[in-house]
Simulated assay, not measured.
Amino acid sequence: MTDTMTAGRDIGAAGRSTTTAGRLHALGRAELTLLVRNRTTVFLVLMMPVLLILVMRSTLQEIGLEKSGLTVAGASLSGGIGMVLLQVVYMNLVSAYVARREELVLKRLRTGEVSDREILVGTALPAVLLALLQSALIVSVGTLAFDLSAPRRPELLVLGVLLGCVLLTALAAATSALTRTVQTSQLTTLPLFLVSMMGSGLFVPLDLLPDPAASVCELLPLTGVLTLVRAGWLGGVPGDDVLGAALTALAWTALAVFAGQRWFRWDPRR
């Protein structure tokens, strides 16, 4: 309750701001305060992607990657960026949106100067910035410590990460509409998490799957993002596949933004 009251005072400052940047800064600062004070969330956000990268590394060593043309380090670390996006942006934001809704923070914000879009974006800012920093750290560590090449197409890598942030932020807003409490967010986020882990190339590159299964998995929400990330960092992806991945990611992003705007709930589900 104390954290909520503190955040309410910080967010209230956004209503007195005269610019969009000022309001977003106040919202983001308040959300960052709540994030830092929640030790469980901080652990999940910072440590879980690292632990899952280690799990992916051991799994990839068992299955062999000769057909995919990737190394164990390259596959696990590029997949680790996908884990950061899922854990830090998607799963964390579903909990944040639901918590602010049930605490009536969102409802109070709508009575002020802040627009609905600013509320959603401002709440997401700390998670998105943290995901960008962690992704940059993964690339840096991979390049320096695991003998991987520097990003071959950095523009594709940046595009993939940014699209992933927008896509998963919008999907978090849509998923929060189906989530009654913060506790049940662990269940409502599980389907996308499992589907992305098994079918979007996080654990197993699509080149190792049978052709019919790979064709279906190419259409999953996070597959296009991960294809862009791997093409940008490691290369080896044909131009047609990169274009198809970009179009798939953009299509899912547009659908997710529409769903988030259409079905997001501002009032508590009681």
Rank of each mutant, 00 (worst) to 15 (best):
T6C: 06
D10V: 01
I11S: 02
G15F: 03
S17C: 13
R23T: 04
L24R: 09
H25F: 05
A26S: 12
R29K: 14
A30K: 00
A30Q: 01
V36F: 02
L44C: 07
V45M: 10
I53T: 05
V55C: 09
M56Q: 09
S58Y: 05
G64R: 10
G64D: 04
L65M: 11
S68H: 09
S76D: 11
G80Q: 12
I81N: 07
I81Y: 07
V84W: 08
Q87F: 13
V88Q: 02
M91P: 00
V94I: 14
S95H: 11
S95G: 14
A96T: 14
V98E: 14
R100D: 01
E102Y: 05
K107S: 15
R110A: 06
T111G: 10
E113D: 10
S115A: 12
R117F: 08
V121L: 15
G122E: 01
T123K: 00
A124R: 07
L125M: 14
A127R: 13
L130N: 09
L130Q: 07
S135F: 02
L137N: 03
L137R: 12
I138C: 09
S140E: 06
L144K: 12
A145T: 04
A145G: 13
L148W: 06
P151T: 07
P154M: 08
E155A: 15
L157H: 03
L157I: 10
L159Y: 01
L162S: 11
C165K: 05
C165Q: 00
L168E: 13
L168R: 07
L168C: 12
L171M: 14
L171D: 10
A173W: 00
T181Y: 02
V182I: 02
T184I: 15
L187D: 08
T189D: 00
T189I: 07
P191Y: 06
L192P: 04
V195G: 03
S200F: 10
G201T: 07
F203G: 00
P205F: 01
P205N: 13
S215F: 02
V216C: 10
L219C: 09
P221N: 08
T223G: 09
L226Y: 01
L228W: 02
R230N: 12
A231G: 14
L234I: 00
G235T: 04
G236A: 09
V237S: 08
P238S: 11
D240S: 15
D241M: 06
D241T: 12
D241I: 05
G244R: 15
L247A: 11
A251R: 01
T253N: 11
A256P: 09
F258H: 13
G260M: 09
Q261T: 12
W263T: 15
P268C: 12
R270V: 13
